[in-house]
């Protein structure tokens, strides 16, 4: 169980550029939850994920994971609990290193790294097997440099890396937004498959309303640093895009503003 308690974050405090990105946010994520997150530009979605991951510290509030207080833990120490895929396909992989080397880095997430050899032989078989499940033919290119892969292939690889060691929470921040529609669909299907196969607790930001409704068991909508909607179970299953838009207007008092939001 992950809890955000009264979490706030303001960027550039006390300057003219002051921006309250999160305002006293409370969220409890139950184990096994697959939560989709939507909201307009600048609503604070990425900030929420970055705070959980420890990219920057909270101004106030607490972040707890299974009773452990993460609030003051540096980013690299939290990594053993978290799997992350970013919007930018370049961010999740090391371009100048081989597919196998990238996977080996991910395989040791949260473990100490000493003077043992960077990749053991039997690992390669495991990686080949895992890569096969992506159905991208990457299992035959184990030592190719990741820089040679397409954005979609890199994103699929990053997803595999994030889940190679089962994370307590998987953080996906618009991880298909930079891909062409067909590839995005493929990566999203893969995401859904992996999440349900491994029963991963997940927080997925998306700008596609249909995907947000279709996937996961819970949907939250954010606006101006707050959670303005939290819909689960049966209610979520019966949701329509136009209901969401209406709910948004009612809760925020204005129309949804997201230039990348796909309404249909």
């Amino acid at each position: 169980m992950i809890e955000l308690k009264n979490v706030s974050k303001t960027f550039n405090a006390n300057t003219i550029n002051e921006k309250r990105a999160l305002v006293n946010l409370n969220l409890t994520i139950e184990s096994g939850d697959f939560i989709t997150v939507i909201g307009g530009n600048g609503a604070g979605k990425s900030t929420m994920l970055n705070l959980i991951a420890g990219v920057f510290p909270c101004d106030s509030g607490k972040i707890m994971l299974d009773g452990e207080d993460l609030t003051r833990l540096p980013e690299y120490r939290r990594a053993k609990l978290l799997g992350r895929v970013f919007q930018d396909p370049m961010r999740g992989t090391a371009a100048d290193m081989g597919i196998d080397e990238n996977l080996a880095m991910a395989y040791r997430r949260g473990k100490s790294r000493g003077f043992r050899w960077g990749i053991r032989r039997e690992e390669r078989d495991l990686y080949r097997e895992k890569l096969k499940t992506l159905e991208l033919g990457l299992e035959d290119r184990l030592t190719s440099k990741v820089g040679l892969l397409s954005g979609g292939q890199r994103q699929a690889l990053t997803l595999l890396m994030a889940t190679l060691q089962k994370p307590k929470l998987l953080l996906l921040d618009e991880h298909t937004a930079a891909l062409d529609p067909k590839t995005a669909r493929k990566v999203l299907e893969l995401t859904d498959e992996i999440i349900s196969r491994d029963h991963l607790t997940t927080l997925m930001v998306t700008h596609n309303m249909r995907d947000a409704i279709r996937l996961g068991n819970r949907l939250i909508m954010m606006d101006e640093g707050r959670i303005i909607l939290d819909i689960k179970g049966e209610e979520k299953k019966n949701l329509q895009v136009k209901d969401l838009l209406e709910l948004f207007e009612k809760a925020s008092g204005s129309a949804m503003d997201n230039d990348r939001m796909l309404l249909s």
Binding site: A53, A79, L82, R91, A94, M97, E101, R109, G118
Partner: peptide, 28 residues
């Protein structure tokens, strides 16, 4: 030898993509 070890690989990866390496639990 050193840059083939776990630690050496982490150093190479840090030069390549620091962001990823931190997300994978290494103190860059």
């Amino acid at each position: 030898w050193f840059f083939g070890t776990e630690m050496g690989s982490s150093i190479r990866a840090t030069g390549d993509n620091e962001y990823m390496v931190r997300a994978l639990g290494v103190n860059t």
